[in-house]
Write a protein that binds this DNA or RNA. Structure first.
Length: 418
DNA sequence: TCTGGGGTCCTAGGACCC
DNA sequence: TCTGGGGTCCTAGGACCC
């Protein structure tokens, strides 16, 4: 059996841990640039929708005295790490599936424990250790564990844990489960299935496999099987990423090449840092820039281009040079850019990089340099030490008006007790 | 008039997840 | 005025090989 543990309203809960006055109050967390709603406390769920643009719902938030936060990923990332560390003490194998979710392998546990009791113990101790409320779903497949988890959250009676272990229970659960809420069924397939009269997960599994295959390909068939208890997804072990992206929307529209370049240089440097963190090098650098797609007075403008590096690299300086070459090729005067990003791909392990007879660079020296740079930035502050081309970021800085403190990762932000 | 059969690799786009 | 960011996998079609 799998146990899926999911943090309740994760970002909102993180904000509450260090500010208990927020208990039982409606909270929303906004995306970068304070753009739109990306997390809500239960109280706020009744008031605004996920993804609502902030500027459109400002008044509603105010009327309802909703407390607003800009996203604080230093805090959420660290709280996530704490949750995962606690969960890891209970099982041999777990897969950290996202910032707020993990699949735990309960194989064999049923011989010694009552699964529901054991899972309740897990979530009780996790909440005690971290301050984050969590809930869990247990079932034979990941997709069913996801279903179970939704029930655990939906009904208080489950006391945080829902177990789907018998055909009767599963059938009952699927009959009441909307098809669009199934893991693997997104917006498009939801609409499509609804058109064919498929409203619940139960309707879905009663379609023939061939029909699912034609309409939704092998991906759909996997979901169809998983809902019937046939395992298609196993616990995945940690692996390094296959591509890494750093991108931002700008609070203003940028027309100037130099400002855009400064932003791109920072994105490339950030990709470099992430590459070094997972000990990989990138073979290809891609840059994209685009206009404000929300403006209907202008036709959308989008440019992207890739460049193969002569030797795969994770040195920020080399990535920046490549990114600048690309940017020069795709930048066009007279256009206003609202969003840009750098993607690095064709990632290979740091120590398996293929050399190049015609392009020599002192890799050892470079590696020592970035080792020091990363170490200092970890110790002092992100980007305490950076390349001069990265500038000061003032011209394109994100707006984060409602940022809380980095309670757990910055000495300056520690709570003082009076 | 009629035009084989079997394969690989790459890319763009589309679907999904959080 | 103001609309997030970061990923994965699959598929179809085109180009190529013999």
């Amino acid at each position: 059996m799998f146990l899926l543990v999911d943090c309740n309203n994760f970002f909102a809960s993180c904000e509450r841990v260090f500010n208990p006055a927020l208990q039982n109050k409606p909270i929303v967390v906004l995306s970068n640039n304070d753009g739109c709603v990306i997390a809500r406390s239960n109280e706020a769920k009744k008031i605004v929708k996920m993804g609502d643009p902030y500027f459109k719902i400002k008044d509603i938030l105010q009327e309802n005295e909703v407390i607003i936060f800009s996203s604080n990923y230093s805090l959420y990332g660290d709280m996530s790490r704490r949750v995962m560390l606690t969960l890891a003490t209970f099982v041999k194998d777990l897969e950290v599936y996202s910032i707020d979710e993990a699949f735990l392998d309960l194989e064999g546990f049923d011989k010694h424990y009552d699964l529901t009791d054991y899972a309740r113990k897990i979530i009780r101790i996790t909440t005690k250790n971290t301050g984050i409320p969590v809930s869990g779903g247990i079932a034979a497949t990941k997709t069913l564990a996801k279903v179970a988890n939704k029930y655990a959250k939906r009904y208080k009676g489950y006391k945080g844990i829902c177990l789907l272990d018998t055909d009767t229970k599963i059938q009952k659960a699927l009959k009441l489960f909307e098809i669009g809420d199934v893991w693997g069924i997104g917006y498009k397939y939801d609409k499509k299935l609804q058109r064919y009269g498929i409203k619940t997960a139960w309707d879905f599994i009663n379609k023939p496999e061939s029909w699912i295959r034609t309409q939704m390909g092998v991906v759909g068939v996997r979901t169809w099987k998983e809902l019937q208890g046939i395992r298609c997804f196993n616990l995945e072990l940690p692996h390094s990423k296959k591509s890494i992206c750093t991108s931002r929307s700008f609070p203003i529209e940028i027309t100037d090449f130099e400002i855009l370049y400064e932003a791109i240089a920072n994105f490339a440097a950030s990709c470099g840092r992430k590459l070094r963190e997972q000990k990989t090098c990138a073979g290809t650098v891609t840059v994209f820039i685009h206009s404000n797609f929300f403006r209907d007075d202008l036709s959308p403008f989008y440019q992207t281009r890739s460049l193969q590096l002569p030797v795969a690299s994770n040195a920020s300086s080399e990535l920046i040079i490549a990114a600048k070459t690309i940017l020069k090729g795709i930048y066009q005067k007279g256009y206003a850019f609202k969003k840009a990003g750098v993607i690095v791909s064709e990632l290979i392990k740091e120590d398996e990089v293929q050399g190049n007879l015609f392009y020599r660079i002192d890799r050892e020296r470079e590696q020592r340099l970035y080792k020091v740079l990363d170490m200092l930035n970890r110790k002092i502050a992100p980007d305490a030490l950076k390349l001069a081309v990265q500038g000061n970021g003032k011209k394109w800085a994100l707006s984060r008006k409602y940022l809380s403190r980095r309670y757990t990762t910055s000495w300056d932000d520690l709570i003082e007790i009076k």
